[in-house]
Simulated scan of single mutants.
Amino acid sequence: MDFEGCRLLLKGEHYSGQMWLEGLDSEAQETLLFLAGLLGER
């Protein structure tokens, strides 16, 4: 997946029902922190 020019990988685990994003490049950390902030505002 490409989000704002940052390559991310969506991963999941069937047995626990969990899903998470992993960054695939060096710029991913800033993007992941931004997305976590958006999700934390709910």
Rank of each mutant, 00 (worst) to 15 (best):
G40D: 02
S26V: 11
F34R: 09
L10Q: 13
G23F: 05
D2H: 02
R7P: 06
E22Y: 01
Q29A: 15
G17Q: 11
E27M: 05
L21V: 07
S16W: 07
F3G: 00
G5W: 11
L10H: 08
S26I: 05
E41N: 10
G40M: 05
L39H: 05
R42L: 13
L24D: 04
R42H: 13
C6W: 02
S16A: 12
G23Q: 07
G17T: 13
R7S: 10
E41D: 03
E27S: 10
G40T: 12
L10K: 12
A28E: 06
Y15M: 09
K11P: 00
Q18C: 12
D2P: 01
L38F: 04
L10A: 13
L33C: 08
G23T: 02
Y15W: 09
L8K: 10
A28Y: 07
Y15H: 10
L8I: 10
D2T: 15
D2K: 09
L8Q: 11
Q29K: 15
K11N: 07
A36S: 03
K11Y: 08
K11C: 13
K11Q: 14
C6Q: 13
E41Q: 14
G37Y: 05
E30V: 02
S26N: 02
Q18V: 09
E27R: 09
G37L: 04
W20M: 12
L35A: 11
F34T: 06
L38R: 04
L33S: 05
G37R: 02
Q29C: 04
